[in-house]
Amino acid sequence: MDMDIKRLAKLAKLKFTPEEEEKYAAQMASIVAMVEKLPDLDASGPLIDPDNPMEFRKDEVAQNYRRDELIANAPEVQAGCIVVPKTVAEE
């Protein structure tokens, strides 16, 4: 199995010590061996389920929250906004 633990951790925004990395690599190897027991079948074509059509929502406004309720759980707030470390400009 060619699992790049470092790259996956980066994608998942997790950080591991070298020891943890080793442990995870071993554990993941046996888990992946388990999940590889899938039957041989043709898995081409799109994944779509036309038998479960969605009921759409009507375009009608409902305002149910006050700002203070929504940001009450935030770790850091300033001027009604949530605060994060300075971001480098992207998009």
Binding site: R57, Y65, R67, G80
Partner: peptide, 17 residues
């Protein structure tokens, strides 16, 4: 969601869970 789609409102005032 059913929040109002509007521009220029006060910060975090057009939001829901």
């Amino acid at each position: 969601c059913s929040c109002r789609n509007s521009f220029g409102a006060e910060v975090n005032s057009q939001c829901c869970s």
